[in-house]
């Protein structure tokens, strides 16, 4: 007879609902980003505005994506915004 210890001690770390939540969070980030096509455009434009104050960047080489990355503890995947921005030159501090 196997006794489910987690039931007795009320520990639910591995319970399936946590998996459900984690997976949902991940998938919803993608859904929300993808259902709004202007969303990434806006982010891109605003990041550009900020960065241009400090450096010359190549607009054509700019790549912004919603993807996934390992979480800090390395156990789960978390949604992540990845931006790849080639720098042409730094502006001089005046």
């Amino acid at each position: 007879m196997i006794i489910d210890l987690s039931k007795i001690f009320g520990k639910r770390k591995n319970a399936s609902k946590e998996m459900a939540k984690d997976r949902l969070r991940l998938v919803l980030v993608h859904d929300r980003a993808n259902s709004d096509t202007e969303f990434l455009e806006k982010i891109r434009d605003e990041i550009m505005q900020v960065l241009e104050k400090y450096m010359d960047i190549s607009e054509s080489g700019l790549d912004i994506q919603i993807g996934t990355a390992q979480s800090e503890d390395g156990k789960t995947l978390v949604p992540a915004l990845t931006a790849n921005i080639p720098i042409k030159a730094m502006k001089r501090n005046n």
Partner: peptide
């Protein structure tokens, strides 16, 4: 199922 942690509870769903 909610008690066993095998189903999301109301808070979980609202959180998301």
């Amino acid at each position: 199922m909610v008690k066993r942690g095998e189903m999301m509870n109301v808070d979980d769903v609202l959180d998301i």
